[in-house]
Structures are given as C-alpha cells and as structure tokens.
C-alpha cells in the first residue's frame, strides 16, 4: 500500500473510510443518542476526544506495550479517557450528560476507537495516528451531526432547540423513536453508496 500524505490520512476518515457510513462501526451510540442535534454533536465530540487522546498515548507507547497485553492496555487507556470525558460532561453540562445517559461510558467498547488503536495507532507514529484519529473523529462527529439533525428537524421540527419548521408543521414522531434512527441511517448509507458508485464509474 502506498504511504498516504498527511492530508489524505486525515481526509480518509471523513468519507472514504468513514467509520459509520463505510465501516459501519459504533452503530450503538449512532442509533441511540441521535434524537437531537446537540446530543449527536456532544456524542461525536466526546468520542473524538477519547479517540485523539488514546491514539496519542497508544502510538507513543506502541513500542513499550508487549504484544500479548496490548488489548488490555488499550482498554485501560481508553477507559481512562472515557471516564475523564464522562466526568467532565457530568460536571459542566449536566443536561447533555443526562440525555446521553449510559452511552458515554459505552464509548469504551466503541469499535471505532478500539479498532483505530489496533489497526492504526499501534502501527504508526504519533503524528500520523493523531491525524488519523482526528479524521475518524471528525467523520464520526459529522455523520452523527447530519443524522441527528435530520431526525431532530423531521421528528421535532427544531434544530439545536430552535424552532425551524413552520408552526403548523406536524412533527414525524417516528423519527425520534428507534425506527426513525434505522430508517435515517439506512437512507444515509444508501446515499453514500450511491455517491461512491457514481464517483467510481
């Protein structure tokens, strides 16, 4: 495989290897918390924070950590940062913390993060790993933001709490319920695949 340039390393997470739309990783928080745009954004940023910090530490320690205990070590590192994120959210933005509920602690077992540690940060230098983590985090956050925006606008008629739709708009309640999450995500993945096929041919 050809070595990617720094900018490519970052960009791949946004589209070509987008964690949600292409790799279909981390779907549990993707589907569960995206009832409102603020939740989606908070979840994405929290995951990005964990991703960045863990990628930094893992790639820093990649030569030190013995192969046999790497997963255990990664999990401890990730769990530490997730706890940090969780505590900070609870302390400073209690409402968002309450809305996201158990899904912040669940970032620990989010496949995106462990997957990037195992597949990328443990094999690449700090600079590259940070770029990769930033790209993946940005891709995750953007996807969540779009998904949660669609759901919030259609399902509640608001966006970031602002009344967006005309006043007599009857909100599609189903969009803020679990089926709406599956429906919207399915449509987004279909659209991404469609664009990709068109672009390739």
């Amino acid at each position: 495989m050809k070595q990617k340039t720094a900018i490519q390393e970052f960009l791949k997470g946004l589209w070509d290897e987008n964690p949600v739309l292409v790799s279909l990783l981390g779907l549990c928080p993707t589907l569960a918390v995206t009832v409102s745009a603020i939740n989606g954004l908070a979840m994405g940023l929290a995951a990005t924070f964990v991703l960045l910090c863990s990628a930094f530490l893992v790639s820093l320690l990649r030569k030190v950590i013995p192969n046999q205990v790497r997963i255990a070590a990664y999990i401890v590192i990730i769990a530490t940062f997730v706890t940090i994120a969780d505590r900070f959210l609870a302390a400073f933005t209690p409402d968002i913390s309450k809305a996201l509920g158990p899904f912040i602690p669940l970032i620990i077992v989010n496949c995106i993060i462990l997957g990037r540690m195992e597949a990328f940060a443990s094999k690449n230098g700090i600079g590259r790993s940070l770029l990769d983590a930033l790209g993946m985090g940005a891709g995750f956050t953007l996807t969540l933001l779009v998904l949660s925006s669609i759901r919030e606008i259609l399902g509640s008629g608001t966006w970031f709490g602002l009344q967006l739709m005309w006043p007599f708009y009857a909100a599609w309640k189903v969009m803020v319920l679990p089926p709406g999450a599956f429906l919207t995500l399915g449509c987004m993945i279909a659209a991404a695949n469609w664009i990709n096929t068109r672009r390739r041919s």
Binding site: A170, W172, K173, V174, M175, L177, P179
Partner: peptide
C-alpha cells in the same frame, strides 16, 4: 405503521 408512530394523536 409509519403514520401510527409519527402521528399517534392524529
């Protein structure tokens, strides 16, 4: 079913 979930009141 979609309508039922979307507009339970209506």
């Amino acid at each position: 079913a979609f309508l039922q979930a979307s507009f339970p009141v209506k």
